[in-house]
Computed example of a mutant assay.
Amino acid sequence: MIERLRGEIFLIENDYIGVDVQGVGYQVYVVNPYQFEEGTATTIYTHHVVREDAALLYGFALIEERNLFRSLLAVSGVGPKAALGILSAGTPTQIVSAIQAENTAFLTKLPGIGKKTAARLILDLKDKLANWLPATGDQQLKANPFESNDRETVIDALTALGYDEKEALQLAEYSYKENQSVEAWIRAALRQKGVR
């Protein structure tokens, strides 16, 4: 199995990117190919799907996205294309929060998710994802220390550096640590994308 690729992006298409790893070009299906930039070095966390008629790579900028993708694939009726669609509609925290809160209204707005699949997501994943957030129940987002005034400052700084709002939120979320300064938080967020 291929867990990770580190190389240069040489191609961006509507639903995938091309990553050159020491002269070998890999086709990697991603949530939003246009978050990447041709000619830049990147690290992509991957999920390798081998079928009778194809070997496919699905890639993620953040390992947490890849791990949630794998959890989604364990749900009956959710294939790789549907799982990518779900991840394109919100951050992992938003999706997990909706599952844990049994928010079918949110889940049925996700691409390709009807009432039956939303019910399956809740039934199959609610307990498995119980430790995803620091709090449980309806207070998940309110109790999350990530939700602070400093968060907005970090997201604003990242968007000023050219990241779109969704990616800025994801970078801020995964680089958050309690009691760190805003400057340290921004540096940690940039390291998530390999900027030093």
Rank of each mutant, 00 (worst) to 15 (best):
E52F: 12
K116H: 06
S97T: 14
K115T: 12
R70D: 09
F60W: 09
A83V: 10
D20R: 13
T46L: 07
E65M: 05
G59K: 04
P134S: 09
V28Q: 08
E102L: 02
L72W: 10
T43H: 06
F69A: 07
F106S: 01
S97A: 14
L133H: 15
Q22P: 05
G18F: 06
L11Y: 15
G77R: 00
G114D: 08
Y16A: 10
S97Q: 05
E13D: 14
V49A: 04
A82F: 03
V96W: 01
T93L: 06
P134N: 03
N67Y: 04
G18M: 01
E38P: 00
S71F: 13
L62M: 11
L57D: 08
L62Q: 11
L72F: 06
V75N: 09
L62C: 02
A101F: 10
A55R: 15
G39K: 10
T40P: 00
L87R: 02
Y29W: 12
S88P: 02
N131W: 07
A41K: 08
L123M: 10
A41V: 06
N32V: 13
Y26L: 02
T104W: 04
V28A: 01
Q27N: 13
V24T: 13
L62T: 03
G77A: 01
L129W: 10
V50G: 14
G77Y: 01
A74Y: 05
G39Y: 14
V78I: 15
Y16H: 15
L87F: 03
P92G: 07
G25R: 09
